[in-house]
Design a protein around this nucleic acid. Structure first.
Lengths: 143, 143
DNA sequence: GATTAACTTAGAGCGAGCTTTAAGTCAAGA
DNA sequence: TCTTGACTTAAAGCTCGCTCTAAGTTAATC
């Protein structure tokens, strides 16, 4: 089963422009063209797009994704370099997770702040809510 | 206690260029200048930079951050709009958290894939490790 | 045969967020 | 007084990741 670029755009949420851009950039080395010169995407290409999306959203740049895809094309001898890329990427995702939790705390603080402010006015927030006063010091006075 | 732009750069990890850019862009409306025209940053300014960093890293654009800071300047009558911004931001962060976990699964899959491949060769991964075969279908064959 | 719609290419353009440049001011120390 | 170094400004330049344009091809339908 093969898909046209328009179908892939629908399936992935990427635009046809973006798909052509990725292809030209070297992210989709296996995409074939039919006799009319139209791209035919396979399931493997879709899985690769899925992975590209994952790598992109975990912070890898297109250039680095292209490097990884180049390595895949080179076969078994690049196995350990590819393995290292994912180990490193996992570490960076763990850091992001921690950062996300810290940011969640800050947003939660702001939400409690505004709840209190809506009740008592901004001038009275830290008088009315001592917990907020202490959380503020903990979360924002880092310098 | 006031800080020079260079000190703030050190404390925050932002460049002096970026700090001036933020100021000019309207993210730091309260930063004063001394008689020589040099910026003097207060603790409040540092806390605001901390918040800007948080909003930025949870996906808000500088334009939207500026809008929030404009609202702060307008006082109490914008309280509920500011509250809404944080409620919305919290929702978007929860979505990011889910996406992060999905991506973590995919990275873990790849790590297990390469561990197996390094042992048995890429040609044998799915023969040697049936769990990987099923995880692959689950994680990447979404289309 | 003409129209339509989906595709093709090369290449220009765009928005975000910095980053650098060029030219100048200022204050402290040798 | 001269130099040094940290600052100031306005504005140009840069990278990334698209996004759009212009001109053309192809295949199916009226």
């Amino acid at each position: 089963m093969a898909y046209s670029i328009g179908q892939v755009a629908q399936l992935t949420g990427l635009s046809t422009h973006t798909l052509r851009y990725y292809d030209k950039y070297g992210l989709l080395p296996k995409v074939q063209k039919n006799s009319a010169g139209l791209r035919r995407f396979t399931e493997d290409d879709l899985n690769l797009l899925n992975l590209i999306e994952c790598l992109k959203s975990t912070g890898l740049k297109l250039k680095d994704i292209r490097h990884y895809i180049d390595l895949m094309q080179q076969g078994e001898r690049t196995l350990s370099e590819r393995y290292q890329i994912f180990l490193k990427q996992k570490q960076s995702l763990l850091l992001r997770q921690q950062e996300l939790l810290r940011n969640m705390e800050k947003l939660d603080f702001k939400i409690r702040y505004y709840k209190t402010a809506l009740k008592y006015g901004e001038a009275n927030v830290y008088k009315k809510n001592k917990q907020l006063a202490s959380d503020r010091a903990r979360l924002f006075a880092k310098f």
